[in-house]
Simulated scan of single mutants.
Amino acid sequence: MTGSHTDDASRPLLEVEDLSVEFPLPRTSLRNRGPRALRAVSDVSFTMRQGETLSIVGESGSGKSTTGRAILRLPPPTSGSVRFDGIEMSSLAPRQVRDLRRRMQMIFQDPLASVNGRMSVGDIIEEPLIIHGLGRAAERRARIVELMELVGLKPGWQGRYPHEFSGGQLQRVGIARALAVGPDFIVADEPVSALDVSVQAQVINLLARLKQELKLTLLFIAHDLSVVRQLSDRVAVVYLGRIIEIAECDTLYASPRHPYTKALLSAVPLPDPKAEAARTPILLEGEMPSPLSPPSGCPFRTRCWKAQPLCAAERPPLAPVSPQTEVACHFPEPAADTVPAGQLQPQ
């Protein structure tokens, strides 16, 4: 039971262009009669090729989870385009969206909240097969056994209920459920943030193995850069609903170009105690601004140590600074192999 893969290897599997998501808000007073909206995602654009893993990283409230859900139309985008295997999803009828979701699945953040506690684990994994009309009862039972073995669970546990499992085991159930219909593309919405550190590593290793074995295209959402390096081909850093840097994984970790990315990486612990003790973490001042009243120009300027008047006057576009990196910053950090200039100059 596998999805149908794109025949045109040169065409991206997923194309997201100017994606924006707004949530309407009630009026706060009789004086405020106009419509109000919270803009959670603003003009996000990226592509993904078949078999790639792109990680979206940012602080809580940055819009990363909303971006992943909007791609699956949970909720539908307010504006912008999402094309999956060349199909424009905004033009599809509800039944067509449901059919396409067989190829586009999701792993949720909270493994316990994402399952029905009154259903056995076997029934949870079987449910998407029934919804999409895949296989007869005997074939579905065999598929359940196959999936449980694939994610490292004992098939004899399929009659147990969610409360009998640990968080890590339940997340494996969620992964098996997402894989049941043979998808091409999976959105993993912070799948390890609710787990212990040791269990996080096990789930990351499992996803890395499944990615290779099943040729999955994975959009991995996380708030911590330390958990995505092993899994990612590229990393997109988001701030206040916008992508501010996107780069190949090794390039981003070796040479972050946006000040915010540099600050995030400075908080990632180093395995060498001497190197960890010798470095000085970058401490950002203040909180992320509210999406209800974002700052003018660059959204990060209110916390940036490099901010200048230009940053308040103009919002920097996401533009290439190297073959591997795009960054939205008027004054990006120098590449790791260059000497910083004595005077900041606009890029």
Rank of each mutant, 00 (worst) to 15 (best):
R83N: 15
Q212T: 15
P269S: 13
Q96P: 06
S29V: 10
S290P: 14
G34N: 11
M48T: 09
E52N: 14
A335V: 01
R172G: 01
A137M: 09
F185Q: 08
R118C: 09
S114Y: 01
S90A: 14
M106P: 07
L25C: 09
D85E: 15
E190M: 07
A9N: 12
M104P: 02
G117F: 05
D184L: 08
V145R: 14
R303G: 03
G122M: 02
P334G: 10
P75A: 04
P281H: 10
A236D: 10
P77Q: 04
E213C: 14
S29R: 13
D337K: 07
P289K: 06
R27A: 14
P162L: 02
I87C: 11
Q169E: 15
D110K: 06
L310A: 05
F331Q: 06
V321C: 11
F165I: 08
R95W: 05
V187H: 02
R39Y: 07
R315W: 01
L54D: 11
E52Q: 15
A188I: 00
I125E: 11
R279L: 10
L284P: 05
G86R: 12
R103M: 10
L218P: 03
R101W: 00
Q212G: 07
T28G: 14
D123I: 00
I131Q: 07
V97C: 08
L219Q: 08
V181A: 09
S60Q: 09
D7I: 09
M148G: 07
S90I: 06
D189Q: 07
L284S: 04
F185T: 05
K262Q: 13
P269A: 12
R229E: 12
T325A: 14
V44Q: 08
G58Q: 00
V192R: 00
E127K: 05
L214K: 14
V238P: 02
S62T: 06
T6H: 12
A40P: 05
S322K: 04
D110N: 12
I144G: 07
E126L: 02
G156F: 03
V115W: 03
G133F: 00
V41M: 06
R234S: 13
E287Q: 15
L195W: 04
Q202G: 03
L214A: 05
L344T: 08
P299L: 08
S120L: 06
C298D: 04
P76W: 00
Q212K: 15
R36H: 12
E276S: 11
D8Y: 04
Q105M: 11
L92G: 13
Q171F: 05
M104G: 01
Q202D: 15
R301D: 10
G133C: 03
V228I: 11
M119I: 06
G34A: 13
S81K: 15
G342N: 15
F331P: 09
Y260C: 07
H5A: 14
